[in-house]
Write a protein that binds this DNA or RNA. Sequence first.
RNA 1: GUCGAAGUGGCGGAAUAGGUAUACGCGCUAGCUUGAGGUGCUAGUGGGAGAAAUCCCGUGGGGGUUCAAGUCCCCCCUUCGACACCA
Length: 954
Amino acid sequence: MATADTDTPPHRYSAALAQDIEMRWQRHWDENNCFDAPNPAGPLADPAALDGRPKLFVLDMFPYPSGAGLHVGHPLGYIGTDVFSRYKRMAGFNVCYTMGFDAFGLPAEQYAVQTGTHPAITTAANVANMRRQLKRLGLSHDPRRSIDTTDPGYYRWTQWIFLQVFNSWYDTDAPARNGEGRGRARPIDELIAELESGTRPTPDGRPWATLTEPERRVVVDDRRLAYVSEAPVNWCPGLGTVVANEEVTADGRSDRGNFPVFKRNMRQWMMRITSYADRLIDDLDLLDWTDAIKTMQRNWIGRSEGSRVRFTSAAGDIEVFTTRADTLFGATFMVLAPEHSLVAALTTAEQADAVAEYRTAAAAKKDIDRQDATRTKSGVFTGSTATNPVNGQQVPVWIADYVLTGYGTGAIMAVPCGDQRDFEFARQFGLPVPAIQQPPQSWFDERSIEPSLDTSTWPEAFVGVGTYVQSANDDGLDLDGLTSIEEGKCRTNEWLSARGAGHATTNFKLRDWLFSRQRYWGEPFPIVYDEHGPIALPDTDLPVLLPETDSFSPRTFDADDEFSNPESPLDRLDWWNEVELDLGDGLRTYRRDTNVMPQWAGSCWYELRYLDPTNENAFVDPVVEEYWMGPQADTAEGKHHPGGVDLYVGGVEHAVLHLLYSRFWHKVLYDLGRVSSMEPYYRLYNQGMILAAAFKDEREIYVEATEVDERDGGFYFEGQPVTREWGKMGKSLKNAVSPDEMYDAYGADTLRLYEMSTGPMDASRPWETRDVVGMYRFLQRLWRNMVDEQTGEISLGGPADDATIRLLHRTIDGVRADLDNLRVNTAISKLIELNNHLTKQGRCPADVAEPLVLMIAPLCPHVAEELWAKLGHTESLIRDPFPVADPALLVEHTIELPVQVNGKFRAKISVAADAPDDVVGAAALADEKIQTALAGAVPKKVIVVRGRTVNIVA
RNA sequence: GUCGAAGUGGCGGAAUAGGUAUACGCGCUAGCUUGAGGUGCUAGUGGGAGAAAUCCCGUGGGGGUUCAAGUCCCCCCUUCGACACCA
């Protein structure tokens, strides 16, 4: 630890000096509003300051203001965006860069339940503490733009956007707003107008005029993008609330709290995100995101192209979804999910007991058990058959729990010869397995069996591409002899459509978004109910303030009490939820909606509010939105730029939830003409995580990581051996390191450099406190090269020699390229190399000092400002131009070339940079070491790679 | 199981377009400074052989392409992440 004592020079760059410098410059930036970014219009407008500068919108995923405050793992991304923002500001950009807080959510509410402290009070205190910690890092945020999702001035617009969604419907036939393709959200009034005029029929065909008012309400409400629905939801008694599919873990428990979750039918708010499924997938192509994240979103939405096929039965038509309609001739049985609505009607008397028993058993199973693919197939015959449309065969109908209600139609046709699960099922229950494709010879060879269409000899289903056999009927469908699956599907679909037995379709895994929560600390819905259903409150009634109470928790139940019913904290507030309003037909009593919105709501649009945070007339001024987020020039590949934030940095953990919901809201706003951008986040960058060592004792309990000693390759806590693992920093692993400790020991500039230097931004890396000193030493050497440690005065050397100037320009060139591509770690190593070169010379040459300080500035802004001032400048350097390399100084006259003999490095030669290949080759051959290495052998070939190497083949 | 990302010194990591593997930092070793420790500074530091010059081996493993492979191709192993009976 660096403590100044008697023999330390008075003006050494010590932790104390660093802190002094940092506090002074942070105050200076604050008092002079240095990071205010002007808008083109509205309260933050300063059109003159825009001055033709290109815009850049840099965004961090905003944090939840946790009571524990920041640890050093949090700011990795923030430091990265700050370095980038500062660099771009110096490169002439108008940079919008700020920070807000996603402050609704469970922890503050649970804390309130325990202590009685109102969540608003806890939240305000936590936000203040996090603001202090972030400011101490020297982040160049525009403080005017900061928002907090719990501020009524903010959530008023969250409620307003909800009403936009509520008051919209999705018209699949309307031309897209950008003119490409069809489908867009339209105002609900336009739907009502079409129904009234009769241009659009009512669902059951009765004229609109003959419908009663309640009937009309139902027709319209059924089309809204936000709707109340009796739908299967995830009920979590332990939390006392429902949760979204996305918040349920793979083993059927709640993401928060880890309580069991049950599928139940309940009336809840839903958002029709499925209407946007195609666009949410297709528009990923327009975005500059990593393929990993795009793949995760695609998989989540889960689009699959296939067909719906109707099998007729005595109990009614059974519709199945299949991606392989071409295999219909091999479909020898059907399997329905145990919950399928036709099961009761299909079940015969003899099978009734078995079916009932199976259904009960399936219902009792947790999702986790039903999803175990390795267990043997189970199932029960219903006793009925259905008719295969292509060949009229009667196929038995079974139920089995491997067929899921929530996917497709909850029923499948089973093609045992071509699907491994169906194959196993058929084998187990002795069902026929006719072959419909001739597998190639190699398939049989690999399994060491004789080629045969007798599937009883097959060890498994054939899933490859083969020639169709036994796939024809006498009604015009004949696939025999075909080898193309595409062609097979296509012909089958045509045949099915022509006979009304099926059609091509697209199926999605994505479900509509469950949008209500039975909790307190969230945005209330701007909705009241009359006896017929929900009614939107007018804009003038916004915000609907969260009512005061001292009872914050929903009623929770025994975690396993599946049949309990939700009761939100707002339900109990009769004074609040009974309300007298005049909504157009006189003063009447209504009931308020007592749900609150999920935490995702506030984060679905915060980037837009950053742009125009004080606007009281709109969520964002369209002129301001278009300036910062509007589409830019087409990309190099000729793709249209969809608009959006220029750089969005955050962790992968939001790859599906936040990013999907946010894109959905943004697209609705786009369709309604409220924003000019089609997508919220044009470029997404996922930063890695900082991991820290955590230690467990023999009882598997975590011990305080700072108290663990390492010796002889082992780890010990209070003398007892402990085991090490790497994990996310935090309270639970007892391994958090606070940035405040680092400020005290080294200062913020050292912490910033350390976090940036340990690896590329997108990589996770372990935190090592003992490594931090390396960057501290670098700053000390940098300081000493320019400042006299005894007097504190600037002290530079004479003009730089040629080699130093050339190194400087190479450094400028490299640092620019690195920072442009967020390769901050290698930018730092180049700056250290330059500084190490200067250290060998004793002093920093006078003509190197300024460019060096400017290059350091985005990384460690405080020490850079201090040195800049010492160099005689009276203004802050935050808008001084970043140095530009002189191309002439990047070209070397003489270069050193490695020479290889048979691919092995043997010698270095020095040649003129522009020497022709034959001269370089001759010089290589003439080298003494090369002659030795050749040992008299005659070179067969001399390969000269310009400016790179010479290889002699002997 | 499927999909995705990644395996380079004791550690974190460098290596534009296939062209000197290990930049930069930590740690370690030696020396200077100091009463001592720390800080600071200087030099060295992939492994093996050798007094040295130098030589051999080295980017998870095995093959291949090439004058030349950490980088490209094929197979395998390991780690991490996501999804998971998706019809």
